[in-house]
Amino acid sequence: MNVKFINPFLEGTISVLKTMAFVEPRAGKPYLKMDSLAKGDISGIIGLTGSATGSLAVSFSEPAIIKIVSNMLGENIKSMDSDIKDAVGEITNMISGVARKNLEADGFYIQAAIPTVVSGKNHSIAHVMGGPSLIIPFEIDDGSFVVDVCLAD
């Protein structure tokens, strides 16, 4: 996994959530994940192809995504509903868009597929490429989430 991939996804995540959900995610130390178990309760996954190929997953804990989507919609959401599922897909799509734009500066031209959303305790994330994925952990006041990238150039 190329370390050049870390910052575009990290910055993309902060930019999207700051702009659309008015939260300031705090990034933790990135690490490698060897299994396919998701780190959160709901995940958006998007396939990436081009000068690097693989997939991006964004996996949210329930309290974190409820806060994020409540802020995005200007509503007080209390439980995991269809709005949350749609929003996770949209957030994943936007993070991928900003990250891919950032990656262009390093000469990587990448296209994205349509995101899918998986939810439930202990769900798994099937990355396109298999193998270890890079986890960038984030915290907001209400909970945690991770960006889970598996990309090969």
């Binding site: 989507v69 995005m72 919609l73 200007g74 509503e75 269809s82 749609d86 897909g89 949209e90």
Partner: peptide
Amino acid sequence: DFATMRKVIRNLLKQ
């Protein structure tokens, strides 16, 4: 096509 995204844009416009 996403009802949620329509709500997000509506929320931004209202602001």
